[in-house]
């Protein structure tokens, strides 16, 4: 598939504007996300402060975005990126079903992730807390695990884990019925409060404690730190400078993920800056002799 010059993750105003600017500057762009743009845009009733488009309805603005993208011939690749690896000189982006993309520079425009980690979650990551059941399942042979699932689509992951582990306690964080076939999966409807490491792992819930060898937290959204290992963050936001540079050379961030205020026109403006910064990063790299 070849290496892209700039990969952009997210199709809200920040990501789309970055894609437009990078395309104007003749870069080979990979735009990843949903064609539905951002729900934050399309669901907005009316937007009062978007320059030149007074009182525009969110749905109309989203439609105008897509028209602009299509007119410029920019494709949206509808894939979800689960991890971005900084390889030094380039980045590897891991999509669903382990599709790998390569790019010289990356622009993060995924929007901001709601939901804070549980107390004890960050500290114990990799020491009993995991985000990927299929990744770490093999380490749970003969052991027990708690899985906190935020959507029915996480059930197969827990089921897979149960094939290897002795026992899996599944906390369904959604109203839908669960459909497990294995008998060593116990489904509970309790609220997790915190994770404690005390020899084994202890999950404190509103209805008592559950002891196990490991806790898997399977959330819909991935926090930026988890998405890009090594990325400097400040709470739910990526730390950037005024050029939208992150601490990782070649990685930029814009829009809500880069911090407040959460405004459409600010997101679009930052997308423009991020793309231009990525372009000068690529030019500089080329000049300094890298390919």
């Amino acid at each position: 598939m070849g290496r892209y010059e700039i990969a952009i993750i997210g199709t809200g105003p920040a990501g789309l504007e970055a894609a437009i600017t990078a395309t104007v500057r003749n870069k080979k762009v990979l735009l990843l996300g949903s064609r539905e743009s951002s729900l934050k845009v399309s669901k907005a009733h009316k937007i009062a402060n978007y320059l030149g488009l007074p009182e525009i309805a969110g749905a109309d603005l989203a439609a105008a975005y897509l028209k602009h993208i299509d007119a410029m011939g920019i494709q949206i690749t509808e894939d979800k990126i689960n991890a971005i690896y900084s390889m030094g000189d380039y980045f590897v982006l891991q999509g669903n079903e382990n599709v790998m993309y390569e790019a010289d520079a990356v622009i993060l425009a995924t929007g901001v992730v709601a939901g804070k980690p549980f107390p004890g979650e960050d500290e114990n990551l990799g020491r009993g807390v995991s985000y990927c059941a299929t990744c770490d399942a093999a380490l749970y042979r003969g052991k027990s695990a708690v899985v906190i699932g935020y959507a029915p689509k996480e059930e197969p992951e827990a089921e897979f884990l149960a094939e290897i582990a002795d026992k899996v306690t599944y906390l369904a964080m959604y109203p839908e019925e669960t459909s497990f076939t294995r008998e060593n999966v116990e489904v509970l409807r309790v609220k997790p409060l915190s994770i404690v490491r005390d020899g084994r792992m202890k999950l404190v819930t509103d209805q008592g404690e559950i002891e196990s060898d490991g806790v898997f937290v399977l959330r819909e959204a991935i926090s930026p730190k988890q998405l890009v290992p090594g990325l400097a963050t400040d709470g739910p936001h990526v730390t950037v400078d005024l050029q939208m540079k992150t601490n990782l050379p070649g990685c930029f961030a814009c829009g809500d993920i880069a911090g407040t205020p959460y405004q459409y026109i600010k997101a679009a403006g930052q997308g423009n800056v991020a793309a231009l910064s990525a372009v000068s990063y690529l030019d500089m790299k080329k000049r300094s002799g890298g390919k």
Partner: peptide
């Protein structure tokens, strides 16, 4: 080992430090 990759640094067989998960080269 409960999560991989896990990189363990040892001096004369004594564990000094460890890192878990992918990290950029720098």
């Amino acid at each position: 080992v409960m999560s991989i990759p896990m990189m363990v640094l040892l001096k004369k067989g004594q564990r000094v430090d460890q890192k878990i998960g992918f990290m950029p080269k720098a």
